[in-house]
Write a protein that binds this DNA or RNA. Structure first.
Length: 218
DNA sequence: ATCCCGAGGG
DNA sequence: CCCTCTGGAT
């Protein structure tokens, strides 16, 4: 499904209309991952890779009760962490990464979550997407993280035809005001999760349909 | 490009 | 059954 030819000014106008519709539909869009601290948000975000936020939220209360901060988690072994996160999937890798991550936070960052993207991305299990989400949600540092949902919606809305998440993110950031970047990320995720779903998108009730070249009838 | 991995939906 | 879910490391 190719996108119609469109000038930049035309695309910017469409982006503005999409932003307004998103603000109307999701006035308080933010992460749905349960957390009390930046550390817990970082852990929850690492766990959310290729998993539903629901499964993560069912696991983290017990996990955080047992390992509330980086110091506690740094003293654990992956085998001790695995039972808490087994149902999430990819649990062996994630357990190993989380313990190593906590140890690095203690050793190199005083047990705190660093506020620089490069430092975050050096942590095990933390890539560009996770780092961008944590900076935005925990510290309000602007950025449009691109996950499976944002990538799908950017493609369907013809806001970007790029392939790599980083390029899609950069293109989206060029279309929306910086103060709305974090909101746009969370709103697109929510819209992707509940309306513009991967398999049977609910175009009939979609508030973005008037601005969507990919909308389907019926 | 491939592996890690469980759970829910269609 | 197959696809998808807020990816990252090798």
């Amino acid at each position: 499904m190719a996108c119609p030819k469109e000038g930049l000014e035309e695309k910017r106008k469409r982006a503005r209309a999409i932003l307004e519709a998103l603000k109307e539909a999701y006035p308080k869009a933010r992460t749905e991952l349960r957390h009390e601290t930046p550390f817990q948000l970082l852990v929850a975000t690492v766990l959310s890779a290729q998993a539903t936020d629901r499964s993560v939220n069912e696991a983290t209360p017990a996990l955080f009760a047992r390992f509330p901060d980086a110091k506690a988690l740094a003293e654990a072994t992956p085998e001790e962490v695995e039972p808490f996160i087994r149902r999430i999937g990819l649990y062996k890798t994630k357990a190993k990464n989380l313990v190593a991550l906590a140890q690095r936070l203690v050793a190199e960052h005083g047990g705190e979550v660093p506020r620089e993207k490069a430092a975050l991305m050096r942590l095990p299990g933390v890539g560009w997407k996770t780092a961008t989400v944590v900076l935005g949600a925990a510290f309000g540092i602007p950025g449009i993280a691109v996950d499976t949902h944002v990538a799908r919606l950017a493609r369907r809305l013809c806001l970007s035809e790029a392939k790599s998440p980083e390029k899609i993110g950069a293109e989206l950031e060029g279309l929306f005001p910086k103060e709305d970047w974090v909101f746009v990320h969370h709103a697109l995720v929510l819209h992707g999760r509940y309306v513009c779903t991967a398999r049977k998108p609910k175009c009939a009730t979609c508030v973005l349909a008037p601005h969507c070249p990919s909308r389907q009838e019926g």
